[in-house]
Design a protein around this nucleic acid. Structure first.
Lengths: 232, 232
DNA sequence: GCATTGCTTCGGCCTCGGTCGAAGCATCGG
DNA sequence: CCGATGCTTCGACCGAGGCCGAAGCAATGC
């Protein structure tokens, strides 16, 4: 006669301002150190440590040791999805600029990876373009590739014919872009677009972080393929 | 410089065993009284009252007075969606039989409405049938009506050609069936199927609750249309 | 070696909120 | 009217947990 206690445990882990702030800061897929998370939550490192221990305990985040740093990130896309669901109910959320909003972040905002798909201004622009030409449909609850979109993707060589058929992974889902606050494309399709852009040399990794640089070839190709003009 | 406090508030409302149990009990769309919710949470009416006040305050449930009873239900499908997201993380949840698992509930399990669409064994069977004939696709993250499915729905007279074109409401989404633990069809499409079944006299309301009875005509039609055989 | 940095553990303080008993309002049935 | 029922409010109790200072531990750098 077990009740919904597990659910209460998970929700309680999120239901504390400091921990909620930490999770929100991790929503873009970055891995942050305990100190950084303490800063975004405006608490001391000791307190942050106990909070992080609890978040790890219930499985919302995972930690990776590297030297004397400990990098924390969301445990899975499912966790991000859950937090998005909560945010949907909580209504418009304003976040203060999180962790070093330096010039390097301008690059991050322009284009970056989010797990295995494109994010930032570029990711959102692509999602807009696909939606504008009827290749994908995005509503409040989900996203899907239309039949014409699938054909187009195959013609463009972005989507291999055999991809995503037998996978249990969501094929096409919207992912709220943290900097743009609007959805970009995730799932198998989002990963295929990202892979294609990398393989074709449209974008390349900029540094150790997840920022991407659009190459000259990429500017031309993105304009031709999606009608997108990227800031240089 | 507002932080994610709103999110913490919502999550904290769910993050308490008694309130989580109440919300879980409301997940099938029923409206329960304060006393019933106190019972499922195993607390006294006074305590339940304060919990319910908090859930109403943060907008997770809404209440409707009827005589000396107060019926509480989830505020919106978005709330149900959020709770599903949390449950996904919390892992397998066992619920104790909630509120009168009498013989009348057998009817509820067989067929009922969930908001405006079909649920219970019947709802899940229809979803399975539609999926089997390629009319809809359901994955872990969403559901969609295929082009062939749309044509078929039009031919069957279930879906009017003009429906769901301009609505901002999700057209076709999966909704986890609480008794069956498997998805049935919700959204505009789910409502259209339900409406059609009611108008054609396939099912009719059984009592004051949301249980549905499959008519003799309905047995024949459901077999012919979906290939479904319902228990009598 | 020693100092510094990053993070955790320990201990104590104090507030928040979950709990129930008792009482207070409504509503319904006589 | 009266009593019964459904639910809320009030008041008091008390335990969980969020908080920080101080100390401990591990890794790095000099």
């Amino acid at each position: 006669m077990v009740t919904a206690n597990g659910m209460a445990e998970v929700a309680a882990a999120v239901g504390e301002p400091a921990r909620a702030a930490m999770l929100a800061a991790l929503m873009d897929g970055r891995a942050l150190t305990a100190s950084e998370l303490a800063e975004v939550a405006a608490i001391t490192p000791q307190t942050a440590s106990s909070h992080l221990a609890r978040l790890i305990l219930v499985g919302l985040i995972v930690v990776e040791k590297q030297g004397r740093h400990r990098y924390h990130r969301l445990a899975s896309p499912a966790v991000a999805h859950m937090i998005e669901g909560i945010m949907q109910i909580a209504g418009g959320i304003e976040v203060r600029p999180l962790v070093r909003t330096g010039p390097r972040d301008l690059a991050m905002r322009a284009a970056r990876t989010c797990y295995d798909h494109l994010a930032g201004q570029l990711g959102v622009d692509i999602a807009d373009a696909l939606q504008a030409r009827g290749a994908v449909e995005i509503d409040g609850d989900g996203a899907r590739l239309t039949d014409t979109g699938r054909t187009w993707m195959h013609d463009m060589g972005i989507l291999k014919p055999d991809i995503g058929k037998q996978s249990s992974r969501p094929f096409c889902r919207p992912c709220l872009d943290w900097s743009e606050r609007r959805p970009h494309i995730a799932g198998v399709l989002g990963a295929a677009i990202c892979t294609h852009a990398m393989e074709q040399g449209w974008v390349r990794r900029r540094a150790a972080n997840r920022a991407l640089e659009v190459t000259p070839k990429g500017h031309t190709a993105l304009k031709a393929t999606f009608g997108i003009t990227c800031a240089r």
